[in-house]
Design a binder for these strands. Structure first.
Length: 923
RNA sequence: GCGUCUAUAGCUCAGUUGGUUAGAGCGCUACCUUGACAUGGUAGAGGUCCCCUGUUCGAGUCAGGGUAGACGCACCA
């Protein structure tokens, strides 16, 4: 084996072997365990969030597979309507063309072409991450069978009246020329103005002043509203306004909605361009005048002078014109929430159009109940509050999009404007007796991408057919996803799955935190702080990183700053840490917190951990290869250390599995890290040396230790495998043949997970080794603080040796001698005086290291005083507690007993330390 | 406005139903090329657990009130 772990040399090859051997498939045996991959956009590339979530999903998948469950990780990609269409359109634009030049069919062909060519980026990156989904079951949301499910759901919901078509205000993206749902609109506070405009009464008897943030919409005003009880305006109600510029006459109406305290207390009402005004327009049967075109220019409803103007140019012009005619009263600065499209950033326009909607109220009810009843569980639990809050106020879902890429709406229109919904045109014709003389045109719109994603839990399992997969894998076991798509996706899956299968889609919902950069900022291209998981795996040089971060920017002026920051943060680029280190980092950072600040230092630390595992394995192999490891029988004697490491392993296994069942990947990771490094490497491997390198050891003792070495390592590799698949596989291939593993050794990933065995958790052995550690650490401490070389052999005297100490001393003599470099160990008899010495305490027993020629008097006094301070502080606190009458009478017996024992122990220690100080001082 | 979350070592974070001396990694200091590993070893320094008040024998942990920050939903033109 190489001296240093080199991940590059093993990962790709290893993965290929797994995949070719078909190891990612569900076994068909055991309890079903299923995870659905949230389908990434087919246009996407792997980002840190994917890496994080997929690491968790893969760890769970590998764990359950090893536990013998019938484990399926269902994988697939999403057609991502808007995102994908935009990508391909941008490419066309680069060639000076638009999608309209190609026409719908040719454009869609182009997208499919693009998908075949570049759509596999993310799935190949997933392979680099070592994920183990069943690739043979990979689906795409536009595949025939999924499209069939989409149509089926649409038709059925329509038949039940739960999908309907209607003309109403929608959120309109004037750049994309499509409606979007409420969720796709982001409301950000921005600086704007409040314009106060003078609206004269038609009869010339006065005027009202209205305030607005959108003066251009006055072209579509169809009323002015005041509060019915507002005394200032009582006499105005029912009169008419002569709207400036257009000259239209509009009524003054009274409505509770108006807040008399705000602005002037008069509100202009534009029902076709504002959601609140729309409602009021309906209440008062006001006309709705649409004044905008699909790209948010003024249309022909407006006076000629404004037609064709962009809405913001029109705003300026109207303000100028109002000012010129004396109808502009004042302009105030005003903060307002501006709605913007989440894809384009364009200001969203409330726009009156025909769209398709899902009536969600009846679907929401069972979906709420599924969580309330505990059938579906959010982890962490508090996310259910967010879920309830949204679900209880859920609005009908606008599902039609004026795009070309997506599932076409299965509705057909005849020339009389009648609409027919059905699975196919033929079915529609048959059902409605439409002869070939009737021309039918299919609806041009496609469905919201989330409509098909909502069917993911059952559509991927073959629905509407009745399949064995539906039986086995619905509901799935856990959904691992981010809180950003609880409404977009999670809630809708629950609603649709309940509706169409009667089952819940998944039992647990594990909501992960959001990966941010080291300063807690969201990673984004425009901030230039994006880390690519693949770069952490393979490494990247500084120049490539800089150019990657600064190319293709929406705001090129930021490039300089990004370059500067990047050069500062990564002066040497990014090292290749390998997949296992990255995965372990993700797992270790997966606490319950909502935001996770990614720390490069941790990746490096876990890369070092990989190296530690690698070198520990080297040590084990060096001592077991070409030796008798007891695999084929042979007498074995296990040392105290051998029995101890098995006990520790079992403790670790229990803790690990308990953490995993709570989805505490951070605790699970820490548990196995601590065991591997601090127990296995720091202590056990050291404790094997006195056995293996000792001529006095019997062959049975050596065999026992070798057997333990190789088999504990073999077990540890299986324990680590779900988090670190590559390094464990690579080492296991060498280790397994020396271990007790029999049978098929093609891959560690299909080996059983280690089995808990409480009989190995020998408390006596555990405390014996703790005693040994204390002994050794005590002497190391003296060496460290007295500046005695670790190589210098010492002679130790022991005082106050109990029978238990003597037994342990006997059992562990070789360990103590070797690990603390002791030349002689002498037990002092009662009353026997010791020469001046440095002291360490192991319980009541004192270890004395004679000072002659070694130890500095002042240094030893300082060391002793430090120890005394520490113990004294503790003793005082305990004394305080125990002398408190209330504590003694109220605290549980066990707590009091503990405190008493602690006090007694502390006092004994103090006594000894003080005696020691006296001895030293008297020198 | 309604709701959720966060504040612990220089940094990034654990800390379970309240109960020994509040932990880890990174960073820092000193020493060490010892035969698995310097991507290492040994020893060590480092904390007003955001603030206040309360409950309790006992509070990092529970309650109330603040301060600072993050997020979600709904919003008055």
């Amino acid at each position: 084996m190489e001296k240093t772990f080199e991940p590059q040399s093993i990962e790709k090859q290893c993965y290929q072997q797994w995949e070719e051997a078909g190891l990612f498939k569900a076994s068909g045996e055991g309890q079903p365990y299923c995870i659905l991959l949230p389908p990434p956009n087919v246009t996407g590339s792997l980002h840190m969030g994917h890496g994080f979530q997929q690491t968790i999903m893969d760890a769970l998948t590998r764990y359950h597979r090893m536990k013998g469950d019938n484990t399926l990780w269902q994988v697939g990609t999403d057609h991502a309507g808007i995102a994908t269409q935009m990508v391909v359109e941008r490419q066309l634009n680069a060639d000076g063309k638009t999608r309209h030049d190609l026409g719908r069919e040719a454009f869609i062909d182009k997208i499919w072409e693009w998908k075949e060519h570049s759509g596999g980026t993310i799935t190949s990156q997933m392979r680099r991450l070592g994920t183990s989904p069943d690739w043979d079951r990979e689906v795409f949301t536009m595949d025939d069978n999924l499209s069939k499910a989409v149509t089926e759901v649409f038709v059925k919901l329509h038949e039940e009246g739960l999908i309907y078509r209607g003309k109403r205000l929608v959120n309109w993206d004037p750049v994309l020329h499509t409606a979007v749902s409420d969720l796709e609109v982001l409301n950000e506070e921005e600086d704007g103005h409040m314009w106060h405009m003078r609206y004269p009464l038609a009869d010339g008897s006065g005027e009202l002043v209205v305030a607005t943030t959108r003066p251009e919409t006055m072209l579509g005003d169809t009323a002015v509203a005041v509060h019915p009880d507002d005394e200032r305006y009582q006499s105005f109600i029912g009169k008419e306004i002569k709207l400036p510029i257009t000259g239209r006459l509009i009524p003054i109406i009274a409505d509770d909605y108006v807040d008399p305290e705000f602005g002037t207390g008069c509100v202009k009402i534009t029902p076709a361009h504002d959601f609140n005004d729309y409602d009021m327009g309906k209440r008062h049967s006001l006309p709705m005048i649409n004044i905008l075109t699909a790209d948010a220019k003024i249309n022909d409803e407006a006076p000629e002078a404004y037609r064709g103007m962009d809405r913001f140019d029109a705003r300026k012009q109207i303000v100028e014109d109002l000012d010129a005619s004396g109808n502009l009263v004042k302009i105030d600065k005003h903060k307002l929430k501006v709605p913007r499209g989440d894809r384009t950033g364009a200001v969203i326009e409330p726009y009156l159009t025909d769209q398709w909607y899902v009536a969600v109220e009846s679907l929401a009810k069972p979906a709420i109940e599924a969580v309330e009843s505990g059938e579906i569980r959010f982890i962490p639990e508090n996310w259910n509050k967010t879920y309830y809050q949204w679900m209880h106020n859920i609005q009908d879902w606008c599902i039609s999009r004026q795009l070309w890429w997506g599932h076409r709406i299965p509705a057909w229109y005849d020339n009389n404007g009648n609409v027919y919904v059905g699975r196919t045109e033929d079915e529609v014709r048959e059902k409605h007796n439409l002869g070939s003389d009737v021309t039918l045109n299919q609806d041009d719109d496609v469905l919201d991408t989330w409509f098909s994603s909502a069917l993911w839990p059952f559509a991927t399992m073959g629905w509407p057919e009745e399949t064995p997969e539906l039986d086995a894998f619905l509901p799935s076991s856990v959904l691992v996803t981010g809180f950003d798509i609880i409404f977009f996706w999670v809630a809708r899956m629950i609603m649709m799955t309940k509706k169409f299968t009667g089952k819940i889609p998944f039992k647990d919902i594990y909501i992960t935190g959001l990966i941010r950069d080291e300063n807690g900022d969201k990673m984004s291209k425009s901030k230039g702080n994006v880390l690519d998981p693949i770069d952490l795996i393979d490494g990247i040089d500084l120049e490539s990183l800089v150019s990657k971060r600064t190319s293709g920017m929406m705001q090129p002026q930021l490039a300089k700053k990004i370059e500067k920051n990047t050069r500062k943060q990564f002066p040497d680029g990014i090292q290749a840490y390998g997949t296992d280190a990255l995965r372990f980092t993700f797992a270790a950072m997966a606490s319950t917190s909502r935001d996770i600040n990614f720390d490069m230092g941790r990746v490096e630390g876990y890369r070092n951990f990989c190296n530690k595992i690698w070198n520990a394995s080297r040590f084990v192999l060096m001592n077991t290869e070409e030796h008798d490891t007891g695999r084929d029988g042979g007498e074995m004697t296990l040392s105290l250390a051998d029995r101890w490491i098995w006990a520790k392993f079992q403790q670790t296994l229990v803790d690990f599995e308990s953490a995993l069942s709570d989805y505490r990947f951070d605790i699970a990771a820490q548990t196995i890290y601590e065991f591997t490094w601090n127990q296995l490497c720091d202590w056990y491997l050291e404790l094997t040396k006195p056995v293996l390198n000792n001529d006095a050891s019997t062959e049975a003792e050596k065999r026992g230790t070798r057997h333990t070495l190789i088999n504990v390592l073999e077990h540890t590799l299986r324990l680590l495998h779900p988090f670190m698949p590559f390094i464990t596989e690579e080492i296991w291939q060498r280790v397994a043949p020396l271990s007790d593993v029999k049978g098929d050794t093609k891959s560690i990933m299909v080996q059983p997970f280690p089995v808990q065995d409480t009989s190995l958790q020998d408390a006596q052995v555990l405390s014996d080794i703790e005693w040994v550690k204390k002994f050794i650490v005590g002497i190391r401490n003296i060496r460290g603080e007295m500046d005695i070389s670790p190589n210098k052999p010492l002679n130790a005297l022991l005082k106050n040796v109990s029978d238990e100490d003597a037994r342990r001393l006997d059992a562990a003599k070789a360990f103590l001698d070797k690990l603390s470099k002791l030349e002689t160990v002498t037990i002092l008899k009662d009353g026997e005086t010791a020469p001046p010495s440095a002291t360490a305490l192991v319980g009541d027993m004192e270890i004395l290291i004679p000072m002659a020629g070694l130890i500095d008097k002042e240094a030893e006094l300082a060391r002793l005083n430090k120890a005394i301070d520490k113990v004294q502080k503790d003793v005082s606190r305990t004394e305080g507690k125990l002398s408190n009458e209330k504590f003694v009478s109220n605290a549980p017996e066990a707590v009091i007993a503990k405190e008493r024992a602690k006090l007694e122990d502390g006092q004994k220690q103090l006594e000894k330390l003080h005696a020691q100080v006296e001895t030293i001082q008297s020198l």
